[in-house]
């Protein structure tokens, strides 16, 4: 029998209806006390993950994701059910929430100073995110940066870090105590695992931070740290490319992002050493001024 669960993920909340033990178990690993049986809570969105019905499900079971009555994606193979739910949550927020300018980007902060790391898949962004989150930084988000319109303020939307392919082994070695989900194999992004950020990130789930930098990271196995200051026009256009709801918010998003870019430092970095990157970020961006 399927049950209703509640996930409290400031500033949004979800109810999840599912009967799949693997989904329940992974949610519990990743979200800890923020995941519980639904009682009187009122969730923003009603999601569900179900096993597909019919004869096919005996031969090759599939998982289906619903946001209320809507089924935005085609069913995926059963073992990806939890990852499917995570992407479904992203889709739900990206499609419905327009009170913030939302950038496809990681956000990490020291104190209340935050840096955006927008980057395409394969750039090593999530490995860097995981490293920083375990080394004195707090994670505000791995995938979605919520910026309050016409400010430089980022609202945390703490979620697990999504690691792919070879990063999975690296992360398991680097963070032996980390809370990892099961591996979802052969997704459109390759093999995928979710890693819960450390408790300190969760504890500060409701504390906003001010943007001081935008950094586009690129991992290159054979390259020592190289840093380029990005000019503001290029940095702006790259942010626009990574904004989820830019086309909906139009003027608001335009003025918010031009304001952010005017007031922060913008860099592109190439690296093969996470510790060096962390040192650079702290010295040149966080301690700057």
């Amino acid at each position: 029998m399927s049950d209703n669960y509640f996930i409290d993920l400031h500033p949004f909340s979800f109810s999840v209806n599912t009967a799949l033990p693997q989904v329940i178990q992974n949610l519990s690993t990743i979200y800890g006390s923020r995941f519980r049986k639904l009682s009187t809570e009122v969730a923003d969105y009603e999601l569900s993950v179900q096993k597909s019905s019919g004869i096919r499900s005996f031969i090759k079971p599939q998982a289906r994701f619903f946001c209320d009555q809507q089924e935005p994606f085609k069913p995926l193979s059963f073992q990806k059910a939890y990852a499917f739910l995570e992407w479904g949550m992203n889709w739900t927020v990206a499609g419905n929430e327009v009170q913030h300018v939302i950038i496809h980007s990681a956000v990490l902060a020291k104190g209340n100073k935050a840096i955006l790391f927008p980057a395409p898949p394969g750039s090593g962004k999530s490995t860097l995110t995981a490293y920083l989150a375990h080394n004195g930084w707090r994670l505000l988000s791995d995938e979605m940066a919520l910026i309050i319109p016409n400010t430089q303020t980022v609202v945390p939307f703490v979620r697990p870090i999504c690691l792919k392919n070879q990063s999975i082994d690296i992360a398991k070695t680097l963070f032996p105590d980390g809370k990892f989900s099961d591996i979802a194999k052969d997704t459109h992004k390759g093999d995928v695992i979710h890693l819960s950020p450390p408790e300190s990130s969760w504890e500060n789930q409701t504390n906003t931070a001010e943007l001081v930098g935008v950094v586009f990271p690129n991992y290159r196995a054979n390259q020592d740290l190289q840093i380029y200051q990005l000019d503001k026009t290029q940095a702006f256009m790259q942010l626009v490319d990574n904004a989820f709801n830019y086309s909906v918010l139009r003027e608001t998003a335009f003025s918010t992002l031009t304001n952010v870019i005017e007031n922060v430092q913008t860099f592109e970095i190439f690296h093969n050493d996470l510790a060096q990157v962390a040192a650079f970020l702290e010295q040149e961006i966080i301690d700057f001024e």
Partner: peptide, 19 residues
């Protein structure tokens, strides 16, 4: 307040749709 946000989101989406 929580419900208001859903309506406000819809307002923005509808305005954008119009444009």
């Amino acid at each position: 307040k929580q419900t208001q946000r859903h309506f406000l989101n819809a307002d923005v989406l509808a305005q954008n749709h119009k444009k």
